[in-house]
């Protein structure tokens, strides 16, 4: 049998894409995106109605429950730190030398005028913990072929009860994400770009986050440096570290 014929046959005998497969894909994605810990430097460009500005930050994360972020620039933001611990969030401002806890309704506010809320940063669960996936088919995203997954929340408190996720078939990284309200109305849109292989795993190093109900061009995030499984001192994930 010719090679072509063989691959034809292979195509024929591939079992129909099942729900279990879809969940496996999601697990693979989680594996790619999360790590025991990671250290990264990123920049976020926020397009306001009047002007755009770019913030840079260095962040440390351990698992999904602990993270520490320090803003590096611009000057106004330099030294501002955020600590997330077990679902709680504190912000430290060097100008006032105060640590303020962000809780309740405040979590729903936009972070630095971006299209992300504190809560978006807070939801630290893996996709596979929150959603059950179903494979809907394949689509071409740019030059990549992607699986289209439809995610339905299995927990009551997922901010977005439905998502649509386009996963690169080969690299198991998301290329595009659509976030839906309970009613099925699309609320947000995320585009993942600049997928690079870092320490043996594929990782999207840029994405554009867009709140569809809000006017504006959305928020761009670019990861300049990322390193996985680095030694991070424990004291970094304490409130005391905020003031240092």
């Amino acid at each position: 049998m010719s090679k072509i014929g063989l691959s034809m046959l292979a195509l024929l005998i591939v079992p129909p894409l099942s729900a279990q497969n879809a969940n496996e894909i999601l697990a693979r994605v989680d594996q790619n995106l999360s790590a025991t810990n990671r250290v990264m430097e990123s920049e976020m460009t926020i397009h306001g109605r009047r002007s755009s500005r770019t913030l840079t930050a260095k962040s440390y994360a351990e698992g999904t429950k602990k993270s520490f972020t320090e803003y590096l620039s611009p000057v106004a933001e330099k030294g501002t730190k955020m600590l997330k611990l077990e679902g709680r969030l504190w912000i430290y401002s060097p100008a006032t030398d105060r640590i303020i806890q962000i809780s309740g309704h405040l979590l729903r506010q936009s972070v630095m005028g971006s299209d992300l809320s504190y809560e978006d940063l807070m939801d630290d669960r893996k996709l596979s913990e929150i959603y059950r996936a179903e494979l809907m088919g394949e689509e071409q995203i740019g030059e990549r072929v992607a699986w289209v997954l439809e995610l339905t929340a299995v927990v009551a408190d997922a901010a977005y009860p439905k998502q649509k996720l386009w996963i690169d078939r080969e690299r198991f990284v998301p290329l595009k994400q659509e976030l839906y309200a309970k009613s099925g109305k699309q609320l947000k849109n995320v585009l993942f770009q600049d997928v690079k292989k870092i320490e043996g795993r594929w990782f999207p190093c840029a994405y554009v986050y867009k709140d569809l109900l809000k006017q504006g061009k959305g928020t761009e995030v670019k990861i300049n440096r990322i390193a996985f499984d680095q030694p991070i001192p424990d004291y970094l994930f304490t409130k005391a570290a905020l003031k240092q």
Partner: peptide
């Protein structure tokens, strides 16, 4: 008109 709110668990909804 489009209204967006959050349910008791904080789940977004818009209708």
């Amino acid at each position: 008109l489009l209204v967006r709110w959050r349910d008791q668990h904080g789940v977004f909804d818009a209708r």
